[in-house]
Design a protein around this nucleic acid. Structure first.
Ligand SMILES: [Mn+2]
Length: 401
DNA sequence: AGCTGAGACTCAT
DNA sequence: CTAGTCTCAGCT
């Protein structure tokens, strides 16, 4: 769900940018966004169980567009799920099932227009579709990473570490993760709206963000409601802003909100801290070093054992997840790494919650190295002694060589 | 008057 | 695994 109302509030610092501005660099792409759009183009076929790979074609056309402009796309897929986000999964699944039933009924009645509309909301991206795309990425030698947990955090990490120069997504959470450069609303020609994290302080309208520290900005976003912490009733972005500039600590904010008559649920403070830590320390994969790390390092000792930032796993386990050999949920190796045991293509239109948990676990991935530093300014000096080029086991972004 | 929350719509073709 | 945008009713 991201941060409701954040992107409209940042309108003043959204600059129209074409991807050719990123020419010569790697750019991380939220694979789910492309898959979802691609699926819309063949929703009826999928709902009726017809075999189609049009969503792959759609994604590959965008890959081609980026390459045409000299940009190296790195597609990022979701891996395991965090416990905090599990709650709404079932109700979303139920909603889609309902739409599917209604769509099929309309289809049988010959009311195709109405049926097609229902199918659009019934269709979801399944792990099989992600696998199909990954297989094609392999074929076309396109880099990708399967995040150990959330793609959001993984993409933000890569950008923060300079391993990609920008992130292409629709999700406002990237800015809470302090991603330095995000391109939103990119169309098929490569035009989009760029937001630089450092430009957020230039926003004057509809609220003045100039004296908001990164911490206060993050507090504002969490307070207004985020994936990991539902908001206090009647607390939207504007009110959250007021509390975030008026008070230093979450404790002081909650005290003030209660004094103002807001009903703060018991346990809210704890949830707030959980969300805060997740935005700061969620575990991600470092393709350059070939190890598990976190959005920000180091993780304070008392937080490092908390499950909500993603469970710790040893390097080989993590590599297995990232390369698709290991189930991100169970951490057990897939018996047949190359062949998905479920579901068969065309068997189901909507992913079950079980199926959804293994997008990253369907295909064996290989690794490829390459120059990692995507800051244009520093690209040349980096070419000489880049870690990637000197690493014998060819660690780096996953791709099929 | 300003803000929140909820529901419908968009995306793709 | 949507997330975002838009609109509007209801509340303070
Ligand atoms: Mn998100």
């Amino acid at each position: 769900m991201g941060i409701s109302g954040l992107l409209p509030a940042l309108k003043a610092v959204q600059e129209k940018v074409h991807v050719s501005a990123y020419s010569g660099t790697r750019v991380a792409v939220d694979a789910y966004v492309w898959l979802h759009r691609g699926v819309l183009g063949c929703a009826t076929d999928l709902a009726l169980g017809r075999d189609t790979k049009r969503y792959v074609n759609y994604c590959m056309e965008l890959v081609g567009m980026l390459r045409h402009h000299g940009v190296k796309p790195v597609l990022i897929f979701d891996g395991g799920h965090l416990p905090a986000k599990a709650s709404t999964e079932q109700e979303r699944y139920d909603k889609r099932q309902k739409s599917l039933k209604e769509g099929l009924a309309l289809h049988k009645a010959g009311r195709e227009r109405e049926a097609a509309k229902k199918f659009q909301t019934a269709i979801d991206v399944t792990p099989v579709m992600a696998r199909d795309l990954i297989l094609e990425l392999k074929k076309m030698n396109v880099e990708y990473v399967v995040a150990p947990y959330e793609a959001d955090a993984q993409m933000a990490y890569l950008a923060r570490a300079g391993q990609v120069s920008a992130v292409i997504t629709e999700d406002s959470d990237l800015l809470v993760y302090q991603c330095p450069r995000v391109l939103y609303k990119m169309d098929r020609y490569g035009d989009g709206y760029q937001v630089l994290y450092d430009n957020i302080a230039r926003v004057q309208q509809p609220m003045d963000l100039s004296h908001l520290s990164p911490k206060a900005f993050r507090y504002m976003c969490i307070l207004s409601g985020c994936d990991y912490a539902a908001s206090i009733y009647s607390m939207g972005l504007k009110r959250a802003y007021k509390y975030a500039i008026a008070h230093e600590t979450p404790e002081a904010i909650v005290r003030a909100a209660e004094r103002d008559g807001m009903v703060v649920p018991s346990g809210y403070l704890q949830t707030f801290h959980l969300a805060n830590h997740t935005f700061l320390y969620q575990r991600v994969w470092d393709p350059k070093e070939g190890q598990l790390t976190s959005v920000e390092s180091p993780i304070p000792l008392d937080i490092s054992t908390q499950p909500y930032i993603g469970a710790l796993m040893d390097a080989e386990q993590a590599r297995g997840v990232v390369e698709g050999r290991v189930d991100p949920m169970t951490l057990q190796p897939f018996p047949t790494a190359l062949v998905p045991t479920w579901p068969r293509v065309g068997l189901s239109v909507v992913a079950t919650s079980r199926e959804k948990k293994a997008i990253g676990a369907l295909v064996k991935l290989e690794s490829e190295d390459g120059s990692m530093d995507e800051n244009k300014e520093g690209a040349k000096e980096k070419k000489k002694g880049g870690v990637g080029s000197s690493t014998p086991d060819r660690r780096g972004f996953g791709s099929y060589a």
